[in-house]
Amino acid sequence: MLPLNTFWLVQLSLSGALILATSLLLLKIYKYLCYQLTAQKSLVTQINRVLPQTQCGQCGHPGCLPYARAISEGEASNRCPPGGHETILELAELLNDPVLNLDPSHGQFKEFSVAVIREDECIGCTKCIQACPVDAILGGPKLMHTVIEAECTGCDLCVEPCPVDCIDMLKHYEDAPGHPAVIFSKNHDMQGARP
């Protein structure tokens, strides 16, 4: 009776230990996978936060988030012209990569500007509305369109499809009519004045 009992006891304890070990291992693997996934995700989010979010597609991806995903998987980080050198620097710091120059095959860096429609020339074709990635153009078919200046990302995507070339990219504020001029220059000389 006793040896049989011992045998069963040993069996039970052994199988119990095995089950425990397996479950622990599975838990570890699961945790590791979760960690990897979140790390990957957070890296994509971090990269996405650095990108300028103009959604211009000059990098060859449809939007900034897909490009961020591509960078996290090893694509070159110097293909964002609107971000310019600053974005490249930040990305290099984030990814611990060497700093590269902007890839000229994807375009040149330009100052931030917004699209402005010359409204009397617009024929109302709605092509720019379809091109706008952030729905910042208002207008109906055969009616005049206009750009919501505050929402425009300056991505240039509406300029190309316009059949009558009535969209200009203008510098923010400076060219906008009615912007109040700054009248007092901050007097830097004053700060170190010794009476």
Partner: peptide, 18 residues
């Protein structure tokens, strides 16, 4: 700039959804 690009991102996501 950061606030602005976040707003753009949201609008782009909504655009894609639409």
């Amino acid at each position: 700039n950061h606030e602005r690009s976040e707003a753009w991102q949201q609008r782009f996501q909504y655009h894609q959804y639409r």
